[in-house]
Design a protein around this nucleic acid. Structure first.
Length: 522
DNA sequence: CGTAACATTCGTACGAATGTTACGGTGCTGTACT
């Protein structure tokens, strides 16, 4: 214990608070001691200080807001990006015996929502989306209730999604002020310099205590493989997967690719595979996710839809069949490997043809100048009653050729910036904003690309981007430091005889049968 | 960039060959319809 610590809070001596925290840690959570920097985070929150914490997934982030919920007076409000994540987190609290926990989202019918809003004073934890919390009816109800802690889980979403994809993320600071500026806790596993800056800026965390653990994962090795085209990449992938340990995740940039690779791997290697992307039904996504988590799948082929909130300790390999457009996203995805402390492998397959796709994604976030001009004029002339007609507006703009994100971007700009200003000025603002944002995203993309063609140590280069220095280099660091696929040969393949045919027929049969179940048509 | 779906062109005047264009990723929400 910190016996020398000064009692900094007059009403509640801090050591007494922390003694209480220890007690809750044992009695409610059943842990004998704090892990990582949980103690410091909890201590700061109990002293009513804002906290920005960066900890690896599985490092015990949830406890940082759960525990203070049992000591502070008032509601712990947790802003969470995904419905499934909210439900999972609420369930895990219920499993601890907590019944004063609710979620507030579109899965509830109107009566259930009303009931939750009328019960706020009796609750300890409320999970909510950034979109829901921004609704006037909801924020008005929350204003009337004492909020002990304003938690933003997966806070990198502010930077990664807030500017274009989910603009409500950029309005959390306003909401926080409206709720009486409660103590704020921002949590994430991965934040590069720019993401950190955005989190601080858009949550008003300038004076927050920062507990930032290193993003370095010494037990994950980095390898980049060059390929001529996608056929070459597929072959290299199959060859690779035939050698290394699983389970593994293959990230690709298209839904169709995830399905195709899943079928190819299953056909050519007999592995238990499945695919996962945003175009699937929620039940199917849940089913596949559970199968992967419980070890019923060897390989999961997916888009970037998969992974947030996923905590599977024994993932051995993460392959990027296409590369993401930021180092932050890359490290986030790679960081899902080897949480158990065993050896992990991150392989990026690169072919020249891949280089256009990320730019196409960036561009699809914004409308063309002509569509922007047309849309703003329509809105300005009152062609649409907002918010009633917003979906009709989105549809019209999409038919003109803009993506949904681009269409919503226009609407968001109009709603937040138009009041009483000439539409021409708003147009100029939008053009300037688009240029700025595009250049920021292109810089991130350029950084990602330069990492791929990096001649020096990939770990050193990656860490420097996150503002860190490499302390000690692991033996199997990266391809530039001499690591090769051959260093990661699976023990499971010692069961292969010289002809390459697996001897363990029972295992092989199990796998083939499982494939039938996952993909009945192949 | 690569692919697929559609359009145009050629001559085998209705099916094959070639040309053009659109698309690619992440999720919340409310409301009106079946």
């Amino acid at each position: 214990m910190d016996a020398l610590q000064k009692p900094e809070n007059r009403n509640r001596p801090i050591d007494q608070e922390m003694a209480k925290a220890e007690e809750v840690l044992h009695k409610v959570f059943g842990y004998s001691e704090f892990r990582n920097r949980q103690r410091e985070v909890v201590n700061a929150l109990l002293k009513h200080q804002d906290v920005f914490a960066m900890m690896p997934t599985g490092g015990g982030k949830s406890l940082c807001y759960q525990l203070p919920g049992y000591i502070l007076n008032g509601l712990v409000l947790i802003v969470s990006p995904l419905l499934s994540l909210m439900e999972d987190q609420a369930d895990s609290l219920r499993r601890l015996g907590e019944n004063k926990v609710r979620t507030l989202n579109s899965m509830l019918n109107p009566e259930e929502r009303k009931r939750v809003l009328s019960q706020l004073r009796q609750l300890r934890f409320l999970f909510i989306s950034p979109e829901m919390i921004r609704q006037p009816r909801v924020s008005r109800a929350l204003e009337k209730v004492p909020i002990s802690l304003f938690v933003v889980d997966e806070a990198h979403c502010i930077s990664q999604w807030g500017h274009e994809f989910r603009p409500d993320y950029l309005h959390l600071a306003e909401i926080r002020i409206r709720l009486g500026s409660p103590v704020c806790l921002a949590l994430t596993a991965t934040a590069d310099q720019r993401v950190k800056k955005d989190i601080v800026r858009y949550l008003h965390l300038e004076s927050a205590q920062q507990f930032l653990m290193s993003v370095d994962r010494p037990n994950i090795s980095f390898i980049v493989l060059e390929a001529k085209n996608s056929e070459d990449k597929t072959n290299q992938l199959i060859e690779l997967l035939g050698k290394v340990e699983f389970p593994g995740i293959i990230y690709c940039s298209g839904r169709e690719w995830s399905e195709k690779l899943s079928k190819d791997i299953s056909k050519r290697l007999g592995f238990r595979t499945a695919f996962y992307h945003g175009g699937m039904e929620p039940e199917d996504r849940r089913k596949i996710q559970n199968q992967f988590l419980s070890g019923e799948l060897d390989i999961l082929c997916c888009t970037n839809a998969f992974g947030m909130g996923i905590n599977k300790a024994d993932i051995r390999v993460v392959v990027h069949f296409h590369y993401p457009s930021t180092m932050n996203a890359y490290l986030q995805e790679v960081g899902r490997a080897a949480r158990d402390g065993g050896q992990g492998l991150a392989v990026l397959l690169h072919s020249p043809a891949d280089d256009r796709l990320p730019e196409a994604f960036i561009d699809s976030n914004y409308p063309s100048p002509s569509i922007l001009k047309f849309a703003l004029n329509q809105l300005d002339q009152g062609e649409y009653q907002l918010p009633k007609d917003s979906e009709r507006f989105i549809d019209v703009i999409r038919i003109m050729g803009a993506g949904e994100t681009a269409a919503r971007f226009i609407l968001e700009q109009f709603i937040t910036k138009s009041s009483g200003r000439p539409v021409a000025l708003l147009y100029d603002d939008c053009i300037r904003l688009i240029e700025n944002r595009r250049s920021v995203q292109m810089k991130d993309l350029a950084r990602m690309r330069s990492w791929i063609s990096e001649k020096g140590c990939r770990r050193v280069s990656c860490l420097s981007y996150f503002g860190e220095k490499l302390e000690t280099k692991p033996d199997l660091c990266c391809d530039r430091c001499g690591a090769k696929i051959g260093d990661f040969l699976s023990h499971q393949h010692s069961a292969l005889n010289n002809s390459g045919i697996e001897v363990d027929w029972k295992k092989r049969l199990d796998r083939l049968l499982a494939c039938e179940k996952v993909e009945p048509d192949s």
